[in-house]
Design a protein around this nucleic acid. Structure first.
Length: 758
DNA sequence: ATAGGGTTAG
């Protein structure tokens, strides 16, 4: 028998464990309580997979308290708290009375619900056990109320160092620096844990100076102390310090543990620094370090954030049954981040157990990749499955509503926030500002902005961009001054917004001044500036500006010039801009169409034909987009020639009735003169089923007569459609609000409020 | 100790 004990003591690898298991099997000791307990203890030490432990556990007929204690420890080490609680339940069902060894494990695993076991312990008389008492104190220190921890602490006749430590950490948890320090100074004997608690405490207060002071004064340091200091630096964004301290740690001969690796690896991920990551991986490989599931997950995330998705997937697959929910979620969001929604969705659908973060990852994935409707539908699924969304979910959903212009559903979401007491932080408020301004509700957008007690650059940018879309240039410019006064540094997006606002609002000089104040303007700023000059007829100046650029102008810059050339009928500049655009983005049909329109307005039909020819030769297809409309919180989409909508027949009936009414009312001349310049087949398309027209017809169909129709999202109104809406608004006597990308047009009584449009 | 959120245009 004794050689079995030696084997158990010597086991360092999973194989040793399996050999021992086999020997026990030969001697029919596999269901012997003593040996099963020993095996489980070894599993904990050697990080065996849970499936193996369960097999060992299942082979015993009547598990005793030792076996339960050991398996509880096993799952506790894994952080599998629900398994711990499940096993405790099983333990009670097996009529095995928990002893003083069980309760500390149990209390640690149950988080704030540990309170329940406090009463248990008193009833069973275990509350006088120093380990149990310490665990209870620790729990109150973490989850509160701290006063109870203090009472327990004061009642202890002979306080152990661990009791002091628990109390000090408790004070830090509740932000009581003074009390923590006075306890520290009062302590008769301190150990590494005490010192480390001080380092952790100061780190969490972002007081790195004091953290470092205690760290430097420590009589001895454990890995945990190093980790505390490292994560202090990491969480405060001091990446150079992390690297320096990590190297110092290595040269002091301290062996990094798994936490160290996790800290350093996740630092690399937040940096997205591939070369840093590479060095780290090399070090890990050279040392032959075996990483646990936490570190592997961090590594997976790091590769994903450094752009190496293949490695992420490799780690994911290699983890096999070891992976936990965090691993799954990391992989899902890795795919979502790069826009591989199919892979993300595939994983999401196969996650054994989803949590809010799984849902958030996939919803954010769709929301960030232009699939707002899918994001919202998934959110609806989530609610139907009774998963409670949190703030992060709502931020994605609200943003998605903004992108779609889905104000009705957006308002529903705001109600949901109130009903479920979900508090929004700065990102949430920013998302709200975004949603309201995208939906044309600047009043509420401003209201949210005013109500915030801290605003960041994104809050300003979002509101500025909202005003820009409306042409409220003065408000946008004022916001720029206001943010400077609040010491919030404008970034490139701020300037894009302000310049766009000046452009839409006709503030030429102001725009010029602002443009000149930008430290290093990029192509986007130049594009805005060209647009601003172009709208004001300063086309030659715009061309000079392009010539003065230090970098290669991107398509947007020439696009603005081409647009202005069309408005101001400048064939020379239009040809110049278009020729550049045909090089930069030969597949963009819009450029060909614009140039051909410029020629058409000058009645240069041969050139019109030539440009059309270019399109055919280049195989450029006119791209058509979907038009969206919201009705009762549901989004409906339409595209040319599509009859998949369930009310398609009605829609086409309304469309033809409206057109008939228009003709009867004598509006034909109006539209036909527009149509004269286009070819037969295109005319068919224009008078036929343009997506915008379908959307408007749907709106006419579903809304009450004389009510406001809100038509939103991607309604690029062609000239023909613009005329049609004007006429409808007059004939039906109702207001129609239309959003053409970012501009709002309000039609009523045959007038469109947006004057400079055509 | 590892996973999720907000702003860009014609």
């Amino acid at each position: 028998m004794s050689h079995l004990h030696t084997a158990a003591l010597k086991a360092t690898k999973l194989n040793h464990l399996k050999q021992l298991h086999a020997q026990l099997f030969q001697r029919s000791l596999c269901s012997d309580n003593y040996w099963v307990a020993q095996l489980i203890k070894l599993c904990t030490r050697l990080h065996a997979p849970p499936t193996y432990v369960n097999r060992v556990f299942d082979s015993v007929h009547q598990p005793n308290v030792f076996i339960f204690t050991n398996i509880l420890k096993f799952y506790s080490q894994l952080g599998a708290h629900s398994d711990v609680l499940y096993l405790f339940d099983k333990m009670q069902k097996c009529n095995v009375a928990p002893d003083a060894f069980v309760y500390p494990i149990l209390i640690k695993a149950s988080g704030k619900w540990g309170v329940v076991f406090h009463a248990h312990c008193i009833k069973m008389g275990h509350d006088w056990d120093r380990f149990v008492r310490n665990a209870i104190m620790d729990m109150y220190g973490k989850f509160g109320p701290l006063e109870i921890a203090r009472e327990l602490f004061d009642e202890i006749p002979e306080r152990a160092v661990a009791d002091w430590n628990a109390m000090i950490s408790g004070c830090w948890n509740w932000g009581n620096e003074v009390e923590a320090r006075s306890l520290f100074d009062l302590m008769p004997e301190k150990n590494v844990v005490t010192w480390t608690a001080m380092v952790t405490g100061y780190s969490r207060r972002k007081d790195l100076e004091n953290a470092r002071k205690y760290f430097d004064q420590m009589p001895e340091r454990s890995v945990v102390s190093w980790n505390a200091m490292l994560s202090g630096y990491a969480q405060n964004g001091c990446s150079e310090e992390v690297i320096r301290l990590f190297n110092e740690m290595m040269s002091c001969g301290v062996c990094p543990d798994e936490t160290t690796w996790v800290t350093v690896i996740s630092l690399c991920s937040s940096h997205g620094d591939a070369s840093l990551a590479e060095g780290l991986v090399k070090m890990i490989n050279d040392k032959g370090v075996r990483l646990n599931c936490f570190a592997k997950t961090a590594l997976l995330d790091m590769y994903a954030k450094c752009g190496n998705l293949a490695m992420s997937r490799k780690i994911f697959d290699e983890l096999g049954t070891y992976k936990n929910l965090v691993t799954w979620n990391a992989m899902i969001s890795a795919y979502a981040r790069v826009g591989d929604l199919a892979s993300a969705r595939g994983l999401f659908d196969t996650v054994p157990e989803k949590n809010v973060i799984s849902w958030n990852s996939i919803i954010a994935g769709y929301a960030q990749n232009g699939q707002s409707k899918v994001a919202i539908d998934l959110f609806k699924d989530m609610i139907a499955k009774d998963v409670l969304p949190d703030e992060v979910t709502m931020v994605s959903v609200i943003s998605a509503c903004g992108h779609l212009g889905a104000l009705e559903f957006g308002n529903w979401a705001v109600n949901f926030l109130e009903k479920h007491q979900i508090k929004l932080s700065i990102s949430g408020d920013n998302a709200l500002i975004f949603m309201y301004s995208k939906c044309g509700n600047m009043k509420d957008a401003e209201k949210v902005f005013q109500s915030m007690d801290t605003r960041d650059v994104i809050s300003y940018n979002t509101l500025i961009t909202g005003f820009a879309a409306y042409g409220n240039a003065i408000e946008a410019v004022e916001l720029l001054w206001k943010m400077k006064k609040e010491n919030i540094e404008p970034d490139r997006i701020t300037y894009i917004g302000v310049l766009t606002a000046c452009s839409h609002g006709g503030l030429l000089e102001e725009g010029r001044r602002i443009f000149d104040s930008i430290k290093d303007p990029d192509s986007d700023h130049y594009a805005c500036m060209v647009d601003l000059l172009g709208r004001n007829g300063k086309l030659d100046e715009a061309k000079c500006l392009i010539g003065s650029m230090a970098m290669h102008p991107h398509a947007g810059v020439y696009g603005s010039l081409l647009h202005a050339s069309r408005v101001h009928k400048r064939i020379d500049l239009g040809e110049f801009a278009a020729s550049k655009l045909f090089e930069i983005e030969p597949e963009n049909s819009g450029n060909y169409v614009l140039l051909s329109n410029i020629y058409a307005s000058a009645r240069r039909w041969e050139d019109v034909d030539r440009v059309r020819g270019l399109m055919t030769i280049g195989g450029v297809k006119k791209t058509t987009g979907w038009s969206w409309i919201e009705h009762k919180g549901e989004m409906h989409k339409f595209i040319v020639g599509d009859r998949s909508h369930e009310r398609s027949a009605d829609i086409h009936r309304v469309l033809s009735e409206t057109e008939k009414k228009m003709r009867l009312a004598g509006y034909m001349a109006d539209t036909s003169c527009v149509l004269k310049d286009v070819e037969e087949e295109e005319m068919e398309e224009m008078v036929g089923t343009h997506s915008e027209k379908l959307a408007v017809a749907f709106a006419l169909l579903v809304t009450e007569p004389h009510s406001v129709i809100r038509v939103v999202k991607n309604l690029r109104i062609c000239r023909d459609c613009h005329t049609a809406i004007k006429i409808i608004s007059k004939m039906e006597g109702r207001e129609i609000i239309v959003r053409d990308n970012n501009r709002f047009h309000s039609f009523s009584e045959g007038q469109c409020s947006c004057k400079d449009y055509w």
